[in-house]
Simulated assay, not measured.
Amino acid sequence: MDLIGDLVHARGVAAVVTTHEPALVTRADRVLELYDGRALSALAPTGT
């Protein structure tokens, strides 16, 4: 995840990562929460 984050910020590109791990969600710039194939919310995480 460190490598992906470094590349995204250094090159100004996007990466789409899926996870069930809450610790990884806090590292994201944007989060789209899905349930049963539908978007429930799009939010900025509260982590640093």
Rank of each mutant, 00 (worst) to 15 (best):
L40N: 07
R38T: 14
A14D: 10
D29W: 00
S41W: 07
D36N: 10
D36Q: 15
D2F: 11
A14L: 08
D36V: 05
V17S: 12
G12N: 07
V8P: 03
R11D: 13
L32P: 11
V8F: 13
D2Y: 06
V13I: 08
L32F: 11
L7A: 11
R11P: 09
P22F: 04
A42V: 07
A14E: 11
V31E: 01
E33M: 07
G5F: 01
V8S: 10
M1W: 06
H9Q: 09
D29H: 05
V25G: 00
D2C: 08
T46E: 02
H9Y: 11
S41G: 15
T48I: 13
Y35V: 12
T48L: 09
A15R: 07
G12E: 04
P45H: 02
R27M: 12
I4L: 11
L24E: 03
V13D: 14
L34W: 13
L7P: 01
A10R: 15
L43R: 11
V8Q: 02
M1R: 06
E21W: 07
A15P: 08
A10N: 05
L32H: 15
A42M: 14
D29F: 04
G5Q: 05
S41T: 13
R27H: 15
Y35K: 12
T19L: 03
M1P: 07
T18D: 01
D29E: 10
D36A: 13
R11E: 12
A15T: 04
A23L: 10
P45G: 05
R38A: 13
E21T: 09
T48F: 09
T19P: 03
L7W: 02
A28V: 10
L43F: 08
A14I: 08
D36I: 04
D6N: 15
L3T: 10
G37S: 05
H20C: 12
G37K: 06
I4R: 03
V8T: 12
E21L: 12
V8L: 08
D29L: 05
L24V: 06
V13H: 14
A23P: 04
L3D: 11
H9K: 12
D2Q: 15
A28H: 02
A23S: 13
R27L: 15
T46F: 03
P45L: 05
G47E: 00
L3W: 05
G37V: 12
